[in-house]
Design a protein around this nucleic acid. Sequence first.
DNA 1: GGGACTCTAGGACGGTTGTCCTAGCACCGT
DNA 2: ACGGTGCTAGGACAACCGTCCTAGAGTCCC
Lengths: 188, 188
Amino acid sequence: MNGAATREHIVEAADRLFYQRGYEHTSFADIAAAVGLSRGNFYYHFKSKDAILDAVIATRLAGTRHMLRQWENEHPTPSGRILRFVEIVLTNGPDIQQYGCPVGTLNTELAKLGHTMRGQARELFTLFRDWLREQFTELGHADQADELAMHVLAFSQGVAVLSHAFADEEFVRREVSRMRDWLSTYEK
Amino acid sequence: MNGAATREHIVEAADRLFYQRGYEHTSFADIAAAVGLSRGNFYYHFKSKDAILDAVIATRLAGTRHMLRQWENEHPTPSGRILRFVEIVLTNGPDIQQYGCPVGTLNTELAKLGHTMRGQARELFTLFRDWLREQFTELGHADQADELAMHVLAFSQGVAVLSHAFADEEFVRREVSRMRDWLSTYEK
DNA sequence: GGGACTCTAGGACGGTTGTCCTAGCACCGT
DNA sequence: ACGGTGCTAGGACAACCGTCCTAGAGTCCC
């Protein structure tokens, strides 16, 4: 098999497992079993577990950038784009209910571990924060764009944590509706 | 030394360490070192790590119940009590910034581990949820009391996650102020 | 003084962790 | 046919994990 393809498979499996079970609770053996490789052979592709995490975060960053660019194409207005972000807790509802927010839970875990790669995980948040800020700026609220961006981000994290804890879909729907109303007061 | 006192010291140290480093990332050796006991001797007081977690959660539940009762004494009006809860992200600001919300992070971790004690950790959330619901009911919004309680809970979790990730105190202050305004629209 | 009870230290156990090493497979251009 | 390269399997490694066991302090009551 192609080496680059195997590497991609590893990152893919690690990404999923890190999200579902957490970084620390996922062992090399788990990833190896998921990909179908022998445990020891791993070090040909990645020289440490941190290196896999590094690749996983890089993949997520690239994927997020791609998604945001796609949202910009699909929704012409900034308020439509912000709403698209808000609704992520619905479109990804089942995953969030089972595993929480991939960005939030990773940040929380790495912070508690005192992990070196904490800063790069935070970059995932920053990506959304900057993008949301741009949308609010375009909406004509440049003066408080960052504050509003953080508010929307806080909404998504709060909903994700409680959806994860209580598995209550109706709650998520109500919060989104509440957010939609709030957002409409900021439209031009 | 008294055995009951030692047991209390263990729970105390475990409580702190579980909060600061996470449950899984805290080993018996860590707790033993913190209390000043030998590793093996632990099993005289607790027959398993889960048993310690059980005791820690029980302690937190009791402590939370005590705190809520105290808030009821200190604040005569339901809106004052709700505001007291909202301001917890300020009064516990430094801890939350460093380690996140003790309730939220524990729930998230135990859920990812698929831990048996997940249900008892959720009870910590339920305690606040029920208490907030009572306050909103007393405020004259019995019909949507639970929804409002969950909204306030979501606020606290969202703020905690982002405060933990970005260590931005000003953001917390702004969100609290925003919440104060929202709350005032529900006062009698 | 002697036995029972409470509490402790220290080490042994089997298993798992991340890491590393080596031997060998398949395929390549020459 | 052949040496080199890319990739793999399998096991060894030291360290750590949660768990368990035993021997012995210290203290109390009879």
